[in-house]
């Protein structure tokens, strides 16, 4: 089995930044994927493929036809089925050695602490401000990194919020914006790009390598093919991270 694992990960363990010790660190890590929509679909697969030992996936929704332009972990065969089950089956098919814990629940202030048992990193796969607020507060309480991703249309944002080291999500995003009666439009690759950056950030944070998006917000414009990095600073008036 060990030899099989060696072969599976050979193209990443030959990287000096990872090596056998890094692979072991990935195998020992536990990540919460908070939502398996457009973002979570991709982060789940890349993190499973990379050999993250334990992936918890939490989502309360079922697979709908309108999800399938971007939520590519799911398929027509799972229409109407819980997203976490659809995702768990796909993850196990990709890498049967990964432990997957599907939690078919909407993330709330009431269940988040239980969801975070043994978790090392929170990966944002949610689609609204309120859930991200729950994740951000939990990240601060449990001192866990929160890898944020957000998408709309052709645009995306990604950042890593590390309690005690960086601005937090609510330092920067203070509310849900202008309410809308309709779901925002999105093209699939937007979610794919943002989620790929999130997966890369998660792996780097676990391994302690490279330059992460600490105190930086990466903004991606798919229409213009522009990447732009915004320098963030903790907000001294932030009500969440208490830097007043």
């Amino acid at each position: 089995m060990r030899r099989l694992d060696d072969q599976r990960y050979i193209r990443q363990t030959i990287l000096p930044e990872i090596g056998p010790d890094g692979q072991e660190a990935l195998a020992c890590a536990c990540v919460l994927i908070a939502g398996v929509g457009g973002l979570g679909s991709i982060t789940c697969l890349y993190l499973a493929a990379a050999g993250i030992g334990h992936i918890k996936i939490a989502d309360g929704d079922v697979v709908e036809l309108s999800n399938l332009n971007r939520q590519i972990i799911h398929s027509e065969a799972f229409l109407g089925q819980p997203k976490t089950i659809s995702a768990a089956i796909r993850i196990k098919a990709l890498n049967s050695h990964v432990r997957v814990t599907p939690v078919q629940e909407r993330i709330t202030h009431f269940n988040i602490d239980g969801l975070l048992k043994d978790v090392n990193i929170i990966v944002d796969g949610s689609d609204n401000y309120e859930t991200r607020q729950v994740l951000n507060r939990a990240s601060l309480r449990h001192e866990l990194p929160f890898v944020y991703g957000g998408v709309q249309g052709f645009n995306a944002m990604v950042s890593s919020f590390i309690p005690g080291q960086t601005a937090c999500f609510e330092c920067i995003v203070r509310g849900p914006g202008i309410p809308s009666d309709t779901s925002p439009g999105i093209i699939g690759p937007t979610a794919g790009i943002a989620a790929s950056f999130q997966a890369m950030e998660t792996i780097k944070l676990i391994l302690g390598i490279g330059k992460t998006l600490k105190n930086r917000m990466l903004r991606i414009s798919g229409l213009d093919m522009r990447l732009h990095s915004l320098k963030l600073v903790p907000n001294p008036e932030c009500k969440a991270c208490g830097r007043i």
């Binding site: 457009g38 689609d127 957000g150 709309q152 903004r219 008036e237």
Partner: peptide
């Protein structure tokens, strides 16, 4: 945000108004 009413805008400044992307 608390600096908005004191933070001056200068010639040639590069300013972006960003609506947060909150979809997923």
């Amino acid at each position: 945000p608390s600096s908005y009413d004191t933070q001056s805008v200068f010639e040639n400044d590069v300013i972006e108004f960003i609506n947060p992307n909150l979809g997923g």
